[in-house]
């Protein structure tokens, strides 16, 4: 039992940190433009594929820096030439624009790299077990993922709260006109933030690519859960996103490790009900519903605390 708890905690934290890597970029963009960027996970995917291609040419370490820069540039271009143009048509149009963009990016990735998973491997320098706990190996690469995520969290937090740039960005979020009057180019700030946000997603992509599968559907797999993280944590709140990522990561891994069901608690149903829809609910295990738990959490949070865990304002 202890073994399962320790290992589930470790796995939950790992998954949660990966979620946070992406959520950090999304939540900053969200609070700036007021728009959920549906294409955010597409940049995560672009990061993974750029990382794959560049690591093929120059190795993994250069890829870890070049791929996010490339993706960030594309992101900045999208903001400058796409979103800004659509902005005047309202939030719905902006949101749908990113929706269409996600669609197009997935197709373009399929055209260039095909629909099958590509062979993106962990760099040899990190391909060894870091430590063994309860006879389960923990790959060094996963520890590396963990360190990078924490590093980014700390750097982001310090940049936003302690530096001049962070102050201007935060001011531009709440009082864009005032910041404009003070002589800052608000459009420029928005573009920069969008670029940095997408670059963060791409970092997550380069790191997650070798650990998970680098395939053209990887964006769609993580998309919805990312929105859950951002909304549950509170729109625009970085610590909120951090807590929500960890919460959802742990929630899912712990649910998976549980076998309980109503039938297990109260005994099987009488044969009269065994073939009705009641039996479906009765026999379903906690592990089976693990993937839908985050959505339940989302609905509950929005119904009872619409600003999210640490958010300060509604939508």
């Amino acid at each position: 039992m202890l073994e399962l708890i320790v290992i589930s905690t470790l796995n939950g934290v790992l998954f949660g940190m990966l979620l946070f890597l992406m959520a950090s970029g999304l939540t900053v963009i969200f609070s700036m433009l007021g728009v959920l960027n549906f294409a955010h996970t597409s940049f995560y995917m672009l990061g993974a594929f750029f990382g794959f291609q560049i690591s093929r040419w120059f190795g993994f370490w250069p890829a870890l820096f070049i791929a996010p820069v490339l993706a960030g540039l594309i992101g900045a271009a999208v903001e400058r030439y796409g979103l800004r143009h659509v902005h005047k048509n309202g939030h719905v149009a902006e949101l749908l624009f990113t929706f269409g963009l996600a669609f197009a990016i997935e197709e373009i990735v399929q055209i260039i790299w095909g629909k099958s998973p590509v062979d993106f491997r962990v760099p040899p320098s990190l391909d060894f077990p870091a430590f063994t706990i309860f006879s389960t190996n923990y790959p060094a690469y996963k520890m590396f993922m963990l360190l990078v995520s924490i590093g980014i969290f700390v750097v982001l937090l310090i940049t936003l709260k302690r530096t001049r740039i962070g102050m201007i960005v935060q001011a531009a979020l709440s009082h864009p006109h005032m910041v404009g009057h003070l002589g800052h180019n608000v459009g420029h700030i928005f573009m920069m933030v969008f670029g940095v946000g997408t670059a963060l997603a791409a970092v997550a992509g380069v790191i997650a690519g070798p650990a998970l599968v680098t395939q053209s559907n990887m964006a769609g797999l993580l998309g919805p859960i990312l929105f859950v993280v951002v909304v549950v944590g509170g729109l625009g709140s970085l610590p909120g996103a951090f807590i929500a990522s960890l919460l959802i990561g742990l929630l899912q891994t712990f649910a998976v490790s549980m076998n309980g069901s109503l039938a297990g608690m109260f005994g099987p149903l009488s044969p009269d009900y065994a073939s009705t829809w009641l039996s479906d609910i009765w026999n379903v295990t906690v592990a089976q519903i693990a993937p839908i738990l985050p959505y339940m959490l989302l609905v509950l949070i929005l119904a009872f605390r619409p600003m999210g865990l640490l958010g300060t304002r509604e939508s």
Binding site: S8, A211, T253, S257, A287
Partner: peptide, 21 residues
Amino acid sequence: DEKHPLLKITDFAPYIAKIKA
């Protein structure tokens, strides 16, 4: 005897932990 959702899992580590246990 495990059932997991179809094509939705990105990280099987928790399931592997269970198999191991």
